[in-house]
Design a protein around this nucleic acid. Sequence first.
DNA 1: AACAATCCATGAATTCGGTTCACAAACCGT
DNA 2: ACGGTTTGTGAACCGAATTCATGGATTGTT
Lengths: 240, 240
Amino acid sequence: MGTEDRKQRERQAREQLFIDKAHELIRTDGLLALQMSKLASACEYATGTLYQHFASKEDLLAAVATRTTIQHAERFRRLPELPLGTRSQMLAIVLTDLDFAAANPDHYRLMQYLLTEAVWAQISQERREALLTAAQPISDAVSGVVERAREKGDLPVAREISAEEMGLGPWALNQGMQSLANARGLLEAYDIGQPLDHLLRHFHALMTGWRWEPRVDPDEPSVVRAESERVRAVLQEAFQ
Amino acid sequence: MGTEDRKQRERQAREQLFIDKAHELIRTDGLLALQMSKLASACEYATGTLYQHFASKEDLLAAVATRTTIQHAERFRRLPELPLGTRSQMLAIVLTDLDFAAANPDHYRLMQYLLTEAVWAQISQERREALLTAAQPISDAVSGVVERAREKGDLPVAREISAEEMGLGPWALNQGMQSLANARGLLEAYDIGQPLDHLLRHFHALMTGWRWEPRVDPDEPSVVRAESERVRAVLQEAFQ
DNA sequence: AACAATCCATGAATTCGGTTCACAAACCGT
DNA sequence: ACGGTTTGTGAACCGAATTCATGGATTGTT
């Protein structure tokens, strides 16, 4: 039935419009200022129409986060092809994430908000799964690099730890640093600047601690910086 | 003026009552369920009275978090006296934090919520500072251990990184793992269990990567477990 | 002790914004 | 063209945070 298809497409397009506009409004006015009625009228629809697409405001926010996550995840798909050793590929993941966070400062904040238990509970099962699924390629990329590193002998296979659990280390380090960096005033209060530069050094310490070869010494900032530059150049090259 | 003093004390006591009761209500019914009017009547006061103490609900929550943080911070004060090497003292910090998080599952969630930009903005300057100040001893404990380790030669002094910035690594790792562990369904979706056990292994990898002596090999779970047991025993001994 | 002035607890009223729903318009097949 | 159904509308609803006019308690004064 052709008409059915068209309606489905139109519905889809409208949902996209809502999500894009919401993202835009969040970018300009902040998460706090987003109001369902304002969003609706900005899209030239009635408030009720929003609720034909999203079960709640949190649900809408989850949809926004999902969309952004899908775009983000896209960058990881071609990672294994890069002309980089496994350890540098892992660094490439962290750098990609870092750059993405810098370009989308709201995204981490939004994710942090959504993953708060109180908020998470307000999101429909369906959207929660969609969000997790969207993030899957990122997790897969991490596990994939770990597996390849183990196969190639770059990374000793430690007992009782899966590739996913290995990847949890850099993931948590990254996540934690983003949270801390985003909490306005927190790190400043402790005289800590440039948290994200330090993230890279701690990342190398972590990798070296697991004996992931070839080692990069976290002690020497210039070495760490040079390796980041090298990997960034490869990423730049590969992705236009 | 004695009467003034008494009134101050009573006011203080009432504020404490509000904070304690709020903490209790959060423990039993969850953060989501906390209502200002319910809290007020649970304390046998009118709603408006709450607002003589707290500028907003977020302000109240910050006060709850501050109180808990002060209790938590207390545990770090006597840390330098412990009969442990510097690296084990650092582990002691992580373990203390871990145990505290296990005993106060709401605290991390509450902190995560409060540090969300949207929420943070709702808290009065005063309370924000109080919360940061309350956490200061923890940060001091971390920096202190790093400094002592450097002095004793357990930890090489890396270039361009302060003691605070060194401590940022384990802090971020810890924080990130807590966030991930708290996001219901997130780690399960990626087949990761026991995230906090893995935290300890990654912690040792990080420390070893910075060449903090004496090394503990993250590869061997039994070694990691044994070291945790040893340090836990010392903590147990010291703090009754 | 009586009185005025001040303070401050009270809880009903206000406000705000997310969510619902009765109605109407648009759409569909006959 | 017409009945039936689906979909969009936005005013009304509702819950919960916050405010504020009120009155009772407390303090200071004569």
